[in-house]
Design a protein around this nucleic acid. Structure first.
Length: 237
DNA sequence: GCGACAG
DNA sequence: ATCTTGTCGC
């Protein structure tokens, strides 16, 4: 599929943290929430990035799965060099460029993109999932493994139980139990989805393990490619 | 000012 | 995220 933007539609790619935060404040207003039936998605893409020690290079992966079969129907990987350092809250500026390239390399356009990180559950309400959603103008949601902003009471032990993730006076996401007896994952809206639909989809995508299958596939693929290419950045499908 | 801080 | 073996437990 084809992406329309490669960076902040309002200007140059951020050169430092202050620029990046300003860009997030501008773009945050572009996020939309839509009350859709995410669970009716027939194809979902999982996105993830793996890094080489020393930050010499990275591998971004996009894997498309059919729903509800959860079979792999397409995938793409991109090897590149980090353009931005890791700074909590500015995570997207590290991963968005290579992820957009990986998404463009797909031959299938998925109905929803599942990102490894957050969307609205972010200091400026513009985490990775929202950032990608706005640039691609596609439905996205974020699934984090540890809370970033806000706090949530532990959900009941049964799979499917959840509790709201609250930051100040806002509900920015929810802690969702995808497996009983295992720590919950944190779901938040990326773009053009609603929290109920996003949570419902995540539960369908994680029938057995804590993390959604699309993300597990993207994680494994990016890790495998990283291991097979010890150095020299380039791209491949 | 201090601590915390997605991957 | 990554550096890293075995080990305890279901």
């Amino acid at each position: 599929m084809r992406a329309t933007f490669h960076g902040d539609p309002a200007g140059e790619y951020p050169r430092d943290p202050d620029d990046a935060r300003a860009a997030q404040r501008r773009m945050a207003g572009l996020v939309r929430e839509e009350p859709v039936e995410c669970s009716r998605a027939s194809t979902v893409a999982g996105l993830d990035v793996s890094y080489a020690a020393g930050d010499t290079h990275l591998v971004a992966a996009a894997v498309v799965l059919s729903v509800p079969e959860l079979g792999v129907v397409d995938s793409a990987t991109v090897v590149a060099e980090p353009r931005f350092p890791y700074v909590p809250g500015l995570f997207a500026f590290r991963e968005v460029p290579p992820l957009l390239e990986a998404v463009e390399a797909l031959s299938v356009t998925p109905d929803v993109f599942v990102c490894d990180g957050f969307g609205l559950a972010h200091p400026r309400r513009f985490g990775l999932a929202s950032h990608l959603g706005v640039l691609l103008e596609r439905r996205t949601l974020g699934v984090g493994k540890s809370p970033f902003v806000g706090r949530a009471d532990p959900p009941a032990d049964a799979r499917g139980s959840w509790s709201p993730l609250v930051d100040g006076d806002e509900v920015v996401g929810r802690a969702l139990r995808t497996r009983s007896g295992v720590r919950p994952v944190y779901v938040s809206i990326g773009h053009r989805v609603d929290l109920d639909g996003a949570s419902d989809l995540v539960l369908r995508l994680a029938p057995r393990f804590r993390s959604p299958e699309p993300i597990r596939h993207a994680d494994r693929l990016s890790r495998d490619v990283l291991a097979s290419r010890p150095s020299s950045p380039s791209s491949s499908a």
